[in-house]
Design a protein around this nucleic acid. Structure first.
Lengths: 316, 316
DNA sequence: GCTCGCTCTGCTCATATGAGCAGTGATGCC
DNA sequence: GGCATCACTGCTCATATGAGCAGAGCGAGC
């Protein structure tokens, strides 16, 4: 038995006594016939070699070292990473992430006077996790079109209104479909005084809060009837990994289909990229690819996500 | 938000900074605007409420608190429980347990002069994990019959011989089948001078080392041809949960089929129960029921097992 | 409205732990 | 064989942490 093998075993024995039996290093020293300094060094070694895993088991637990890596290695202004420890379903993950986003918004300083928001399942859940009085006097403005065409009408509006009401402010809705069938209609809608005014207000927002959708058949665009499953398949063929504020991007963050993009109402991606504070909230394995594109192409300054997605961004 | 809810969240934030960022309690106090004593109390609370999980990730890691519970709540003289953290296959679990048994034997004081052993997959693996010179002059004697009939001939012998050779001693084999077809044959064999002498030696052993088999078709008795799958099914119907030294017992540790037992060669269970040192080694979910019967009915004084089996014994 | 008792807070003091440092023994190199 | 090097050991000292305690704040009960 080699010496470092003996030391490895001793460090495990020491760790058992230290962490499971709450003995002092001195007591362990007596038990294993070592000096307390040797015990201290064995424990340090065990930690350093990764034999000791400390996990914080709580729905609200975050992974600060991963957040730091995201800031440092991906140049984000801030990152919130929720722990996946003990998560059993994608819904639970989504909820944790939405809760973390709500917490982040609530703690945000300075409080934004005008907050631009997108809509979708994630945004709706964030709105539900915000507490009454999370802010005082936050005005919310929709940054992309989204009057639902068929199913679940009004969730887009309910999201914006919910965030605004709980924040003691009012919501300004963008009264337009997400994607128009004809370019002329889209241009006409954008020329409309009310719509133009809302978009202008959206451009002036202090902060943006949005999610991204995966490019697959479960997309809200399919569910809402703006795109058919065939449309999505075509986009995927062209390299789409997902959409941000209704605009489909490839893995480099470039618009996949400029013609489709021209028929999409709302803030452009470059306007989003120019924002001083753009908070992207994405979780779940289906969003790994979009999340990567969003972060790489600088679409957000702040990322709220789960541990697995974060590690995907960092380690590929 | 209730006060204890705020405290819960604060304790999670504190735990993140303490365990993941290696901040001192004082630094955390400054960051969260708390006194360092409050931080200390929050951390203690987080531990106490079970939000902090510390795991030792190593094949040789043991679970000392569970071992203690087994000693105290099940009256065992000693218990060795290996961690299941990071185990991916039943084979790996079996290996860890065998390794632990080998370690236990090596560290055993006083060193037994005569060691009685059973045979089977577990025992064979233990023999392989023992190091040359694990003891000096240990004589090994088989405590139950087991000349394999068809497959893998000689593993029973190889086990005993291996343990003896590595321990600087010699092995005494029990030259008899495990189970005889007729009672008369069994009695004749036991009357044989050599066989009687081996059994007498087995009775005088200082310590016994044995495993138990589950009562299912994968049993070594089926594999070796002593029992048919139909025999096993019948035993299960009569309440058998497994076998110890070839003798099938129910969940209370009683012999299931006295007629079969009478045809089984080797130490009786009561002889085993009377031993001052009887080390049972069992691991894997298939052995939960037998392990329970063995421990409850006092067949062993020392138990070597895995975490999951141990928890099954303790919490049902 | 007052008092009793309880919990929680911020402290002092004792203890446990980590950083750094000089001596020691082993190892390899000439 | 002698010497330089280096990892490792056991220490001193500074710091971090936990135990225990007095006082403050708060609520229940009279």
């Amino acid at each position: 038995m080699r010496v470092d093998e003996i030391d490895e075993l001793l460090s495990i024995r020491a760790a058992e006594l230290y962490y499971e039996e709450n003995k002092t290093q001195d007591e362990i020293g007596q038990a294993l016939r070592l000096t307390r300094w040797k015990v201290g060094r064995l424990l340090a070694q065990a930690k350093q070699r990764g034999f000791i895993r400390i996990e914080i088991l709580h729905p609200r637990a975050r992974r600060l070292p991963i957040e730091r890596r995201l800031r440092e290695e991906r140049g984000l202004a801030d990152a919130i990473v929720v722990s996946t420890a003990g998560v059993h379903s994608p819904e639970e993950l989504q909820e944790r992430t939405a809760q973390a986003a709500a917490d982040y918004l609530t703690a945000l300083r300075p409080v934004p006077r005008t907050l631009g928001v997108s809509w979708g399942r994630t945004l709706f859940e964030i709105s539900q996790h915000l507490r009454n009085g999370w802010a005082t006097g936050v005005n919310v403005v929709q940054i992309n079109g989204g009057v639902s065409l068929n199913r679940r009408p009004g969730t887009a509006a309910a999201t914006a209104v919910g965030i605004a009401q709980k924040g003691g402010g009012s919501a300004t809705l963008l009264p337009s479909p997400a994607i128009l069938e004809r370019l002329e209609t889209k241009e006409a809608i954008e020329a409309d005084r009310v719509v133009a005014g809302v978009i202008e207000l959206a451009r002036s927002a202090d902060a943006y809060l949005f999610s991204a959708g995966a490019a697959d058949h479960s997309s809200v665009h399919v569910e809402s009837g703006y795109l058919s499953t065939a449309d999505v398949d075509l986009l995927v063929q062209k390299g789409a990994v997902g959409d941000v504020v209704g605009r489909y991007i490839d893995s480099d963050g470039n618009i996949v289909d400029p013609a489709l993009d021209a028929r999409t109402v709302g803030l452009t991606l470059d306007e989003l990229r120019g924002a001083p504070l753009a908070i992207a909230v994405m979780s779940g394995s289906t969003k790994h690819a979009v999340a990567d594109a969003v972060v790489r192409s600088g679409l957000c300054t702040v990322l709220v996500t789960d541990e697995a997605t974060a590690l995907h961004l960092l380690d590929g």
